[in-house]
Structure formats: structure tokens, C-alpha cells
């Protein structure tokens, strides 16, 4: 049994929500404030703060206060953990495909 870091669990759980996936895509094009992120969803600041908090706990997003404004950015190497996990699964699938019919 392979040990997964708890943040991988949190990352998948954070990614299970379409709003949070769209927020991540938006952050892919640069940093944003909570109100900038909330607006396209017609969401309140409180609602968006909750989403950002979950993404921060999953270590996918970091926030930093610059001057008087708090900025949200994608965390460096945010997707490394889950990407490693998916790649390994993909290799297993390829092995299964190659050895099909062999006993």
C-alpha cells in the first residue's frame, strides 16, 4: 500500500468542485483578488473566501497581502502531488493493456 500525503486527498477534494476548478484556471493567467474572483460567479466575498480557504488548505493556492490588498496565486508546483499519482496510475493502465491475454 502506497502512502499518500494528506494534501493529495485535500487536493482531489478541492478539485471536485467546478467553481474551484474555474478559479484555478483563472489564477493560471495571473494573480487575482477575492473580489475579482467572486464577480464572474456572481458570488459574495464570503463565498469566495471559503473556496480560497479550501484551495489554500489543499496547497493549490497561496495568498499574500501586498500593501493593503490580499492577492491569490497558484502555489508553486501545486499539481505535482496529484500529477505524480495520476501518472503512476496511467503506467499501471498501460501495463495492463500490454499484458492483455498473457497469463
Amino acid at each position: 500500500m502506497v502512502q499518500y500525503s494528506p494534501t493529495v486527498d485535500l487536493a482531489f477534494s478541492a478539485l471536485a468542485d467546478p467553481t474551484r476548478r474555474t478559479v484555478l484556471e483563472r489564477l493560471g493567467s495571473g494573480r487575482a483578488t477575492i473580489s475579482e474572483l467572486a464577480e464572474p460567479f456572481g458570488m459574495t466575498l464570503t463565498g469566495m473566501k471559503k473556496h480560497i480557504q479550501l484551495l489554500e488548505e489543499a496547497e493549490l493556492v497561496t495568498t499574500e497581502k501586498v500593501g493593503r490588498v490580499r492577492w491569490c496565486t497558484l502555489a508553486p508546483y501545486a499539481f505535482e502531488g496529484i500529477s505524480t499519482w495520476l501518472q503512476r496510475l496511467d503506467r499501471f493502465a498501460q501495463v495492463v493493456e500490454r499484458t492483455k491475454g498473457e497469463r
Partner: peptide, 8 residues
């Protein structure tokens, strides 16, 4: 307003 969370 300019707030910690951006423009309101």
C-alpha cells in the same frame, strides 16, 4: 471601496 479583498 478598496479593501483587503479587492474592490467592493
Amino acid at each position: 471601496f478598496q479593501t483587503e479583498f479587492g474592490v467592493v
